[in-house]
Design a protein around this nucleic acid. Sequence first.
DNA 1: ACCTTTAAGACCAGTTTAGTCTTTTTATAA
DNA 2: TTATAAAAAGACTAAACTGGTCTTAAAGGT
Lengths: 134, 134
Amino acid sequence: MMELTRKGEYAIRGIVYLAQQPAGKVSLISEIAQATEVPQTFLAKIFQSFAKLGLINSSRGTGGGFILGRPASSITLRQVVEAVEGPIMPNRCLLGTGSCERDGHCRVHPVWKTVQSHVVGILDGVTIEELASK
Amino acid sequence: MMELTRKGEYAIRGIVYLAQQPAGKVSLISEIAQATEVPQTFLAKIFQSFAKLGLINSSRGTGGGFILGRPASSITLRQVVEAVEGPIMPNRCLLGTGSCERDGHCRVHPVWKTVQSHVVGILDGVTIEELASK
DNA sequence: ACCTTTAAGACCAGTTTAGTCTTTTTATAA
DNA sequence: TTATAAAAAGACTAAACTGGTCTTAAAGGT
C-alpha cells in the first residue's frame, strides 16, 4: 500500500540532479537521464510536467536544456511528488451505504484525513535543497 | 498518490459490519455483502484473507458463516488494511546510481521511513471496535 | 444422500504503469 | 536560409494490477 511509483522516484532523482548543478548551468535531458539512470524519453515527460508548473525552466535549440525555475530551497518534496503523481489523497469513502459525502456518519474518513495531513506535512517539510546537499 | 483500493474499502466495511453484530452471531457472506453493498464473490475472497490471519473465524455448511476471531477492540485498522493490501511501504529506493541498500547515501529514504512510521502509527491507533460504534 | 455454506483457483475486461517512437516546434549557428 | 540542436507533443505498446466473475471442490448439517 501507498507506494511511490517509478515516475515519482525518477522525478525526485531528476530534480535533485538539477539542484546539484552549479548555479546557472543548463543541463540536457540526455545528460540528466544518463546521470540518474532513468530512461530518457520517460524523464523528458516528467520534466515537461515540472516545466508547466514552473518548477523548472526549459529552453530549446542549441544551448537549450533545463534549469531550476526557483531556488531549490523553495521547492518541497511534496510539490515534486504531487507534480507527477497527483495529490496525496488516501481517502476515498468507506463504510455505510452511500458515499461519504451523502451520509455523513463515516467513521473511517477522519482517520484518512489525519493520515493525509501527516504525510503532506512531512513532505512539505523537506526541500530539494536538503535532498541535494552532500 | 497513496490511495486505498476498493479491496481495502470493502475489507473495512465487511469487518466493521461483523463487529456490529450481536456477540456470538454468525453472519452469512451473502448477508454481509448485501448489507455493505460489496460484490459477494469479491467479499468472499477478502474474508478468506481475514480467516487465514485469524481476524475472523469461518465455518461451512448449514449454520455456517463468519464471526470475528478476536474482540473488535484488539483488531486495528492497520491489521485489516495490511491483510488485503500488503504492508504499508511508501519507500522503494530513490536517488543515486544503485539501490538504496547498495550506496548508503540516499537522502530520500529517511523521509519515506518517517512517512511510513507515522501512517502505521495512526492506523495502529484505530480499532475496529471504535469504527463499529454508533 | 442431499443440502448448505465457505475455499480454492481459473479466468477475464478494463485501467494503470512504464515506457517507446515519431513528428512538431523553437532556437541557434553557419 | 538552411542546417542543426534541443525540447514538446502525442500516438502507441507490453506488462502488471484492479476489480471483479465463474466453476469446482471441500466440509459440515439434516
